[in-house]
């Protein structure tokens, strides 16, 4: 049901928004994007797909002068899909872990991040039932440490599970943690937060690229430098994050 809704949103989005008309003749790049992961990429109140990574994708495609076709996916499909060549690249913030680097090409880091532990009071990391998004570095970490987990498809679903009491805690990437802290349902829970700087949960954040397209990787790296120089990166930053990502 949820997947159908996601797909529906993207079909409409893809049909209504030719991103780079000048490059109409060229094949549009298929770009994987998440749809329920604020503030990075989500559907806003008016039904528009938006968020930091969506803005970055638009800016990068514009800088590369190519047409991009966003395709909605869940996080657990991102690495597989990019590795299989289903997507040219993914506008999804991925911690550049060795496992991911072995499967897909990674751009230069466009910012650095860490993870945040959200839990009901007195629930220490590793204790209680932890709600996680399938396919995330945090999910892999929890499984590796043998935590009791509930795997979900989206960050929105994690918030809902926390609010509903289905889970006692969650481990989230920093930008998502900033968004969740804003959520009224979460605020009411009075959760405790802990910054986790563990090596597996922090570090360089990159975009993943089809490993069989090194030219695209090169162009994306140049485009990242360019949008950081011309201010488009900072404008997207200011719209969705309360401070500068570094």
């Amino acid at each position: 049901m949820l997947k159908k809704a996601i797909l529906g949103v993207f079909v409409i989005f893809a049909m209504s928004a030719p991103l780079a008309p000048a490059e109409a003749a060229e094949r549009a790049l298929r770009v994987a994007v998440l749809s329920h992961s604020p503030p990075m990429s989500y559907v806003d109140a008016s039904g528009e797909l938006t968020g930091f990574n969506v803005e970055i994708m638009l800016a990068l495609c514009d800088a590369m002068a190519v047409r991009c076709e966003p395709v909605g996916v869940t996080l657990d499909r991102v690495v597989d899909g990019v590795a299989a060549g289903d997507f040219d690249f993914a506008a999804v913030s991925l911690l550049a872990t060795p496992e991911r680097r072995a499967r897909v090409a990674m751009t230069k880091p466009y910012y650095r991040s860490f993870s945040v532990w959200f839990a009901r009071p007195a629930v220490k990391p590793g204790a209680g039932r932890v709600g996680l998004v399938r396919g995330g570095a945090q999910a892999r970490y929890a499984q590796g440490h043998g935590w009791a987990t509930l795997m979900l498809d989206t960050h929105d679903a994690v918030i809902a599970a926390l609010a509903a009491g289905t889970v006692d805690a969650t481990l989230l990437p920093m930008p998502t943690a900033l968004a969740i802290q804003q959520d009224v349902r979460i605020r009411a829970l009075g959760l405790t937060t802990t910054v986790v700087q563990d090596a597996e949960l922090s570090g360089d954040v990159c975009l993943s690229v089809n490993p069989r397209d090194p030219a695209l990787l090169e162009r994306l790296n140049e485009a990242i430098d360019q949008i950081k120089r011309d201010g488009r990166f900072d404008r997207a930053n200011s719209r969705f994050i309360p401070f500068r990502l570094q």
Partner: peptide
């Protein structure tokens, strides 16, 4: 954000500001 922590009217606003401060302070940059 620090100013917001000190001048927040309620605990919710203060916690939110303090959370942002902690996130900011934890930034690798």
């Amino acid at each position: 954000e620090g100013l917001r922590v000190l001048t927040a009217r309620d605990a919710g606003g203060r916690d939110e500001a303090l959370f942002v401060v902690r996130m900011l302070a934890a930034q690798p940059g």
